[in-house]
Each structure stands twice: as structure tokens, then as C-alpha cells.
Computed example of a mutant assay.
Amino acid sequence: MLVLLPPSETKATGGAGAPLQLDALSYPELTDTRRKLIEALSTLADDVPASLTALGLSERQVEEVQRNAELWDSPTAPALERYTGVLYDALDVRSLSAAERKQADARLAVASALFGVVRGTDAIPAYRLSGGNSLPGLGTLRSVWRPVLEPVLAEVDDLVVDLRSGAYAALARIPNAVEVRVLSKDALGRRKVVSHHNKSHKGRLARALAQCPDEPETVEDLIDVALDAGLRVEREAARKLCVVVDA
């Protein structure tokens, strides 16, 4: 099973790992594209105003540009510990047992605007780049990633659980993946997408999938794991699930 998580805009600072080694990351087929993007992003960081504009940042976020300037030299941390925020708080990998953490590292991966996709143990630096950004000379990240990332993900033979958000799903289509979305339901039965519930419940589902001793192989197995975790799940189509939460 491959559970594909969305990344987060916020990243933990620092790290205990050596500087980035692209050859050590999973999916070596993506190395050339990763290097091209890192070089473009670190070069862009030499021009702070241009970086702020391209990345959609305010002047108060100039430290994010500095992170990009130090991509090759800054310390690294495992991907599942680098990303922070609501989803990763709910996932809470640091509280998993040793056996569960091993399963999390094997089963969970993170979609990334900079790295395409990384596995849980891949050591990466803090950076700032979003799926909807464009970089000078390269264009949109969708145009950069789709030709190289889609073939890599298409080769995954296991059950793929797609928890990515829209901007990251656009970087690579995965035709046979099980898509999961989260909707809130009010007292009148009306449903809508909401950011906080979306992230926290996807984090809960990811944690349950990391903890379950038997790796799910079918959509039915996936539903059972979600139900056991206390999530209300509905099957919208053969490979589409919806987690419903009260507004």
C-alpha cells in the first residue's frame, strides 16, 4: 500500500541529518527534475523581491526565501518529521511505537512541489514551494512534474490511497488510486468541503493506516480500517471514498 499525503506549507526547522543528497532519495527516476527545480529555486532566492512574488509570500516571510537559498547546505530531517500543521499533528508519527513507525515509513509518502514524492524516511531540508507556483524559466510545476512523475506513480502495483489536495493531485494523475475526500454535514444534511476537518481527518486516516497490523489490499479493507478508527466513511464510487464529519 502507498498512502500519498499532501505536504504542508509549514515545515519544521533544522534537523539532525547531513545536507541534502539527491541520490539517497526514493524514486531515483525523479533526480534530474529535483535537481533542476532546486537549482532554479536557490537561484531565484538571490533576488528576494522576485522570490516573494513568485512564491506568493509577503515581506514578513522573507525567512522562507533564505531557506531556499540554503537548500544544498541546510540540515535535513525525515520527510514525515519535516512537514507540520493540522494533518501532521493528527498523524503524530513521533508517538507511534517502533513497529508502527516502521510501517508508517514503509506505507506513507508525501507529495512535494520540490521533490515530486518522498517516502517517510527520505531526508529533506526545509523549503518553500507550493504546487500552484511557477518558477522563472520553467513555468508551472504541473508542466514540470506531470511528464516525469505520472509514469513513476503508474508503476506502483500496490493499493494507492490518494489523500492529496487539488494543487498536488494536479502534478500527477493516478488513474487506479483510491481517492479520499472529507466533507462536513450540517443539521440540514448539506455538505461542503472545509479545510480544517479535511486535514485533521486525513491525518487520522493516515495514522490508522500506519498502525493497522495487516496492510489493506482492497477498498473494502481500507473502509474497515477507517471505520475501526472511528471515521464515518461512504463509498461514492468504485475507487472514491468520502469521510463525513458533522459541521
Rank of each mutant, 00 (worst) to 15 (best):
L222G: 01
R128L: 07
P75D: 08
T10A: 15
G116I: 01
S112W: 12
L183H: 10
V243Y: 10
S165A: 12
T140N: 09
L171W: 08
Y127N: 10
L80W: 02
T84N: 05
R35Y: 04
V225M: 02
V233A: 09
G56N: 01
L44N: 01
V225F: 05
E215S: 08
E100D: 14
I38W: 09
P19V: 05
A50M: 03
L44H: 00
L138I: 03
L149V: 01
V243G: 03
G85A: 09
G137Y: 12
K185V: 15
Q21D: 15
E63V: 07
V148Q: 12
A154Y: 02
A123G: 01
P213S: 13
V243T: 04
D214S: 13
V48L: 09
Y83D: 02
A206K: 09
L138E: 09
G17C: 10
P49Q: 08
V233N: 08
A169N: 00
S184R: 15
S58M: 00
P213Q: 07
V148D: 05
G116C: 07
V180C: 06
P49A: 07
Y27Q: 06
K11L: 11
L57E: 02
T121R: 14
L87Q: 15
S112C: 02
G137L: 10
H196W: 14
G116A: 03
K240L: 12
D122V: 01
S143Q: 15
L108F: 10
L5H: 08
R60Q: 11
S58N: 02
E150Y: 06
P151L: 12
E217R: 14
G131H: 13
R101T: 04
T76H: 11
R142W: 06
E215F: 00
L209D: 10
V233W: 12
K192T: 12
Q211W: 04
S165H: 07
T121C: 02
S195K: 15
A77D: 06
V244K: 07
L71Y: 06
S58T: 09
